[in-house]
């Protein structure tokens, strides 16, 4: 079965990102496909590579990057929500005159249409939020 995942809260503050990661891992282990994880609302904060948790804590951002690379998952960050919260890739940095970018490996910034498209193409959309 093809799953789409929606994450609407940032990492660490809420369990949502951790739950979503555990759900994805379990789904993949059972042979399902995770086509896309869409990050919306404060969920876009899952995508900054400047995240630096203490060494004995999990690195949620890296966990997403690694999972995406290993299983070919499309990690999409909503552009409008990202702009509000200061998440930028190289293109967005140039367009908006910012002096750097902070998007982590494996994430891409795109429009909300990617969420609707996931809804159309996936068998299920599972939301993790606050």
């Amino acid at each position: 079965m093809k799953f789409g995942i929606l994450v609407t809260e940032g990492p660490y503050q809420h369990q949502a990102s951790d739950s979503a990661l555990q759900f994805c891992r379990a789904a993949l282990e059972k042979g399902h496909e995770v086509m896309r994880v869409f990050f919306y609302n404060d969920g876009v904060n899952n995508s900054t590579r400047y995240t630096t948790p203490p060494q004995d804590d999990r690195n949620i951002v890296n966990s997403w990057s690694e999972l995406a690379e290993k299983h070919g998952i499309d990690l999409v960050v909503c552009v409008a929500a990202a702009q509000r919260r200061g998440i930028v890739d190289e293109g967005e940095a140039q367009r908006n005159g910012k002096d750097g970018n902070n998007i982590a490996e494996g994430f891409r910034i795109s429009g909300l249409g990617q969420l609707v498209e996931a809804g159309i193409q996936c068998d299920r959309i599972v939301t993790f939020g606050d």
């Binding site: 079965m1 799953f3 555990q22 759900f23 891992r25 379990a26 789904a27 282990e29 059972k30 399902h32 068998d123 299920r124 959309i125 599972v126 939301t127 993790f128 939020g129």
Partner: peptide, 16 residues
């Protein structure tokens, strides 16, 4: 979590 995945797969849709 595997059981959670099964619940999502065996129902028709999910609301959080």
């Amino acid at each position: 979590y595997a059981g959670y995945v099964d619940l999502v797969a065996e129902t028709d849709n999910v609301q959080s």
